[in-house]
Design a protein around this nucleic acid. Structure first.
Length: 594
RNA sequence: GGGGGUGUAGCUCAGUUGGUUAGAGCGAUCGCCUGUCACGCGAUAGGUCGAGGGUUCGAGUCCCUUCACUCCCGCCA
């Protein structure tokens, strides 16, 4: 028996009445009636009401003890009378009458209350994270995270995957995000980089013949934060398999995701077989490669309408002539929505930096007509053709935007979300997964006009790669895929290119010569030359999975010790200055601060 | 790097058109209270209104600058 407790604070029930017990925990809440004192004692497992009255010599001192003091209580379990039972807590049918107590850890005046469902400023929560983490919601989130990770480990092991660790100090790679660098003492002037992902290592594990690998892998990227993106570091379920094609990966991961989400959430899955959407389709229909499929709205291209004689909306017609496109979102049965609904969306679009969203409603009274600011510019026949192209019906409304393709994708994608939100079209009780497939291998940088890898340079291109096909690199698709859930990118993966000759060719298209490839990817390219199996993998983001399961909008709610938006740890004071000796050892000197 | 929001007591917030000595709840301290579970009642302490500058007879409130936090854009193979 523990010297501190016979039971946890969520253990005692009616059957335990009359037992002498020790409980240890934090004073969650006191209710002081002057001659009678209730204490809610809290630990990781729950809360037990303890009670003491003025006849006990300890009463006076206990009455004055601060909340969040850690105490050991010795007492007896008694049943509560019917009207004093608390159904909210597991131990609500009993209470513990206190005989004596001992302070195990005293507590200063609290900078933030632990017992409260109030929202606190992020700054104080992060500075006193150890207090914040005592609070119910986030405490449970962190426990959920632990359970999800254990579950995934078990499942992966059952599926025959082996868990390996890969180096944290590694080399900087030229593609991808900004690296975190670590100076090398033994190699003056040289730097390690923290891995953005164990990408090359996991491929080397396959080349080493281990067949199936996984790891709950820390990844480090020095990029700016978002609500769903921690600055600095995050975790991936990194996995890789040999002798597989795309289908084999999809099978394994789809099962794992369905299993995990069913185990840890009561929300429905929109589809257990994840729909597959090509990158091209996604960009057209949703304006994004991470569409929220809970949102029923779909984007249509109706550029051709603006080449018709019987359409007189000259602004758009002129733009279309000079190469712009027109895309639209249809909202069902919105003819009776107030003018303010439409104008708000137009105003919102202007705030997003677009030139606004034109709109009108399809009406029939008795002739088909467009009602709204620009409705009059379309003939009956043109309206009919739009309805044809977009599956719109009388009573529906249409929001239109005109511009260059990438501007259009951006604004229509945002508009799709905004309108669905305004019309309350999103079912919050659903997880909608999909695969995004057939990513292009390369894309053109708009500023430099250079051809660059659009995703991962190690991905296998699709199809027979004759010299002719390589002449049009922008047409090349890759065996590259993402999992998206509720509009959040959960993972990306690929079948890898395991053929060094092909690798050199692809890198040369992106402007790297053989020598550069040999230098930058020496480990990889060398290994692929000594008998590499076909292989592929994926890396679902652990933090985002837990965020979805915990129903949180912010990744810090499922991260134990997160940094703030400026990548500072307010509790540990990181990053911090170092002393001159340390710098000297590392052969570093600092420029004078401005 | 850019745009939006926020910043008032230890914590969460209110503060009207610029007008007397800046308020409330929780927490703290003190007192009363034997069945509460957000216990109740009374009192006390607690303020560089983020900082600096300006306009004004007068600024928490208006203007400028700046800082912090946050959301978004850029960025994130």
């Amino acid at each position: 028996m523990s010297k501190y407790r016979t039971h946890t604070c969520n253990e005692l029930r009616k059957d335990d009445v009359d037992k002498k017990v020790f409980l240890s925990g934090w004073i969650n809440k006191k209710r002081d009636h002057g001659n009678l004192l209730f204490i809610d004692l809290r630990d990781n497992y729950g809360v037990t009401q303890c009670i003491i009255d003025k006849d006990n010599k300890n009463f006076i001192n206990l009455e004055k003890t601060q909340l969040e003091t850690v105490v050991k209580i010795e007492g007896k379990v008694v049943a509560r009378s019917g009207d004093t039972v608390n159904k909210e807590i597991g131990t609500g049918e009993i209470e513990v009458t206190i005989d004596s107590y001992e302070v195990l850890g005293s507590c200063k005046e609290l900078p933030m209350p632990v017992f409260s469902d109030q929202e606190y400023a992020e700054e104080i929560r992060l500075k006193y994270r150890f207090l914040d983490l005592r609070r119910k919601k986030i405490h449970e989130n962190i426990i959920l995270r632990s359970k999800v990770i254990s579950h995934i480990r078990n499942e992966m092991t059952k599926l025959g995957f082996l868990e390996f660790q890969t180096p944290i100090l590694t080399s900087s790679s030229p593609e991808g995000a900004r690296d975190f660098l670590v100076p090398s003492r033994l190699n003056p002037g040289k730097f390690y980089a923290l891995p953005q992902a164990p990408q090359q290592f996991k491929q080397l594990i396959m080349v080493s013949g281990f067949d199936r690998y996984f790891q709950i892998a820390p990844c480090f990227r020095d990029e700016d934060a978002r609500a769903d993106r921690s600055p600095g570091e995050f975790y991936q379920l990194d996995l890789e398999m040999s002798f597989v094609d795309q289908e084999d990966i999809f099978n394994v991961v789809e099962k794992l995701m369905v299993n995990t989400f069913k185990t840890f959430s009561h929300k429905k899955l929109l589809s257990e077989k994840f729909p597959r959407i090509t990158y091209k389709d996604a960009m057209l229909k949703y304006g994004s490669d991470k569409p929220d499929l809970r949102n029923p709205l779909i984007i249509n291209d109706i550029t051709e309408i603006f080449t018709r004689e019987d359409v007189s909306f000259e602004i758009f017609k002129k733009l279309v002539k000079s190469g712009s496109k027109v895309r639209c979102v249809i909202t069902k049965n919105t003819k009776d929505k107030p003018r303010s609904f439409f104008d708000n969306i137009d105003k919102w679009a202007k705030e997003q930096g677009a030139s606004g969203l034109a709109y009108f409603t399809f009406e029939k009274d008795p002739e088909l007509s467009g009602k709204g600011p620009i409705g009059k510019f379309f003939s009956k026949e043109a309206l009919f053709e739009i309805m044809n192209l977009t599956n719109a019906e009388v009573g529906d409304s249409i929001f239109l935007a005109c511009g260059k393709q990438n501007e259009l994708e951006k604004i229509t994608s945002q508009a799709r979300n905004k309108i669905a939100e305004d019309l309350n079209l999103i079912d919050e009780d659903v997880f909608a997964f999909c695969w995004i497939v057939d990513y292009p291998m390369f894309e053109k940088d708009e500023v430099t006009n250079k051809i660059e890898f659009s995703h991962n340079p190690f991905s296998m291109p699709q199809g027979d790669l004759t010299e002719k096909k390589l002449e049009n690199p922008l047409e090349l698709l890759a065996y590259q895929y993402d999992i998206v859930c509720n509009g959040i990118e959960l993972s990306s993966g690929a079948i890898r290119n395991h053929k060094p000759e092909l690798m050199y060719k692809l890198f040369s298209l992106a402007g790297y010569d053989k020598k550069q490839v040999d230098e930058k990817f020496s480990g990889m390219i060398n290994a692929l030359s000594y008998g590499a199996p076909p292989h592929g993998g994926i890396a679902p983001g652990i933090d985002r999975i837990v965020m979805l399961l915990a129903n949180e909008k912010n990744i810090r709610e499922v991260t134990m010790f997160p940094m703030n938006q400026n990548a500072q740890d307010l509790m540990m004071n990181a990053p911090s200055e170092v002393n001159p000796e340390q710098l000297k050892e590392l052969n570093l000197s600092l420029k004078n601060k401005k």
